[in-house]
Amino acid sequence: MKNIRRALEGLYTLSAVLAALCLIAILALILIQMLARWTGEVFPGAPEYAGYAMAAASFLAFASALNKGAHIRVSIALNAAPSALRRWLEVWCFAVGSAIAWYFVWYAHRFVYWSWKFNDVSQGQDKTPLWIPQSLMLIGATIFAIALTDHLISLIVKGEHRITRDPEHPE
Score class of each variant (00 low, 15 high):
residue 30 I to P: 03
residue 103 Y to H: 06
residue 136 L to A: 11
residue 18 L to G: 13
residue 109 H to F: 10
residue 16 A to S: 13
residue 11 L to G: 03
residue 14 L to V: 07
residue 52 Y to T: 03
residue 93 C to Q: 13
residue 117 K to E: 09
residue 99 A to K: 06
residue 153 I to K: 01
residue 151 H to I: 05
residue 87 R to N: 09
residue 91 V to G: 06
residue 69 G to V: 02
residue 142 T to Q: 00
residue 157 V to W: 10
residue 113 Y to K: 02
residue 24 I to N: 04
residue 11 L to T: 11
residue 25 A to T: 10
residue 94 F to I: 10
residue 136 L to C: 08
residue 46 A to E: 04
residue 45 G to N: 02
residue 128 T to D: 01
residue 15 S to K: 05
residue 75 S to T: 15
residue 53 A to F: 06
residue 27 L to V: 14
residue 62 F to G: 08
residue 40 G to K: 05
residue 41 E to R: 14
residue 4 I to M: 12
residue 10 G to N: 10
residue 139 I to S: 02
residue 15 S to M: 01
residue 93 C to V: 15
residue 51 G to W: 03
residue 17 V to R: 10
residue 162 R to I: 01
residue 48 E to R: 02
residue 49 Y to L: 11
residue 8 L to I: 13
residue 159 G to E: 03
residue 138 L to M: 00
residue 145 A to I: 07
residue 31 L to A: 15
residue 147 A to W: 04
residue 14 L to N: 09
residue 162 R to D: 05
residue 122 S to M: 04
residue 143 I to P: 00
residue 73 R to C: 08
residue 66 L to I: 11
residue 100 I to A: 11
residue 43 F to M: 13
residue 84 A to K: 08
residue 25 A to K: 05
residue 84 A to N: 11
residue 171 E to P: 14
residue 50 A to K: 02
residue 42 V to H: 12
residue 94 F to R: 03
residue 100 I to V: 12
residue 156 I to V: 11
residue 2 K to E: 15
residue 27 L to F: 11
residue 33 Q to V: 09
residue 87 R to F: 01
residue 35 L to D: 14
residue 1 M to N: 14
residue 63 A to T: 10
residue 84 A to G: 02
residue 139 I to N: 02
residue 69 G to F: 02
residue 105 V to A: 00
residue 83 S to Y: 02
residue 101 A to E: 07
residue 120 D to F: 05
residue 40 G to T: 08
residue 165 R to T: 15
residue 18 L to A: 12
residue 151 H to A: 04
residue 56 A to H: 04
residue 80 A to V: 09
residue 12 Y to W: 07
residue 160 E to G: 05
residue 135 S to R: 00
residue 85 L to V: 12
residue 121 V to Y: 01
residue 121 V to Q: 06
residue 27 L to P: 04
residue 6 R to M: 14
residue 98 S to G: 15
residue 30 I to N: 11
residue 47 P to V: 08
residue 51 G to C: 04
residue 14 L to I: 07
residue 147 A to I: 03
residue 21 L to H: 11
residue 38 W to H: 09
residue 12 Y to F: 15
residue 85 L to A: 13
residue 111 F to C: 01
residue 49 Y to E: 08
residue 153 I to A: 07
residue 21 L to N: 14
residue 130 L to I: 11
residue 20 A to P: 12
residue 129 P to G: 01
residue 31 L to Y: 13
residue 170 P to H: 06
residue 122 S to Q: 03
residue 38 W to G: 05
residue 151 H to F: 01
residue 150 D to Q: 12
residue 62 F to M: 15
residue 170 P to E: 07
residue 15 S to Q: 06
residue 22 C to W: 12
residue 75 S to A: 13
residue 76 I to T: 15
residue 160 E to S: 13
residue 48 E to S: 01
residue 1 M to A: 14
residue 60 L to P: 10
residue 51 G to D: 07
residue 42 V to Y: 07
residue 155 L to K: 09
residue 153 I to Q: 04
residue 69 G to W: 01
residue 56 A to P: 06
residue 55 A to N: 11
residue 32 I to G: 08
residue 72 I to F: 07
residue 141 A to C: 08
residue 104 F to V: 10
residue 36 A to R: 06
